[in-house]
Design a protein around this nucleic acid. Structure first.
Lengths: 115, 115
DNA sequence: GGCATGTGTCAGCTTTTCTTGACCGGTGTC
DNA sequence: GACACCGGTCAAGAAAAGCTGACACATGCC
C-alpha cells in the first residue's frame, strides 16, 4: 500500500519534466557538450559562453529530469570540482507514445512539489 | 547550391519548436485526444475542458511545430468547422541525436522570425 | 426577433522562465 | 597579504508563456 512510488514515475509527469528540460537552446548545447565529454562547471561555462549562475540553473533542470548527473570530485591540487556527464537516456515521441503518457498525467497545468 | 532550404530545416531549430510544443500538459492531452480521433475545435474544447481561446492558442503552437494539422470543412447544416488531426511524427531523443541537432542551432536563446 | 451552434481575435492580467550582477565560502600559489 | 582557481546562492529585473473574459463574425432553428 505504498501510495507514492519511490521512483520518478517514468510516465506523463516525467515526460513533461524531460520535455521542459530540453526545451531551451542553452540546455540542448549543454547536453551536446556533455555527450562528447564529461566536464566540470567552470570549464563548461567557458566553452559554452554561459555565465556560472545561469549554467548552474540549467544543470539543475537537466539533472532534475535525469538527463545528466553531477559528481563532486577533488582535483590533484585539492580543488573541489563538480563533474557532469550525460545519462544514457532514450525517449520516443510519437502520437501513440504521447497518448499513452497523457493518461498518467496528474497535473492540470499547475505546479507541484518535486518532493 | 541551395543555401537556404525551403523547408523548416528539420534540425536544431525545428526540434526546439517541437519540444516547446509538447512541453505542456494541455497540449499533451490535445495530441492524445487527436491521436484517437480527429475532432473540431469546440467539441475538443468540451472534451478536454479547455476554453476556446486557450485551446486555439495551443492548437496554433502544435500546428506551427507540424504535430497537428487543421482543415476547414462544412458540416451538413452549413456550419464551418475546423477539424484537427495528428501528423504521423516520430522523434528520437538521445544524447547523440541532441548533440547532432545542437550543431544546427541558430538561436542563442533569443527570438527569431518564423518567416 | 430570439436562441442555439460553429468560427476567430483582442487586450490585459498572472505566472513561469530566463538572465544578470552581486555576494559568500573554499583551496592553492606568488 | 595579494591573486588565481574551484564551488554555490541570492535578489531583482526582463522576457516569454499561459490564461481569461470579452467581443466579433457566420449559420440554422423556433
Amino acid at each position: 500500500m505504498n501510495e507514492n512510488p519511490p521512483e520518478p514515475t517514468r510516465t506523463g509527469d516525467h515526460l513533461l519534466k524531460v520535455l521542459g528540460a530540453l526545451n531551451n537552446p542553452h540546455r540542448l548545447r549543454i547536453v551536446a557538450a556533455l555527450a562528447k565529454e564529461r566536464n566540470y562547471v567552470s570549464q563548461l561555462a567557458r566553452e559554452t559562453g554561459i555565465s556560472r549562475p545561469l549554467l548552474h540553473m540549467h544543470l539543475q533542470r537537466l539533472e532534475a529530469a535525469g538527463l545528466v548527473s553531477g559528481t563532486l570530485e577533488l582535483s590533484a591540487d585539492g580543488k573541489a570540482m563538480r563533474f557532469y556527464e550525460v545519462a544514457p537516456f532514450l525517449y520516443q515521441l510519437t502520437p501513440d507514445s504521447i497518448a499513452q503518457a497523457a493518461e498518467t498525467l496528474t497535473r492540470t497545468g499547475q505546479k507541484e512539489e518535486t518532493r
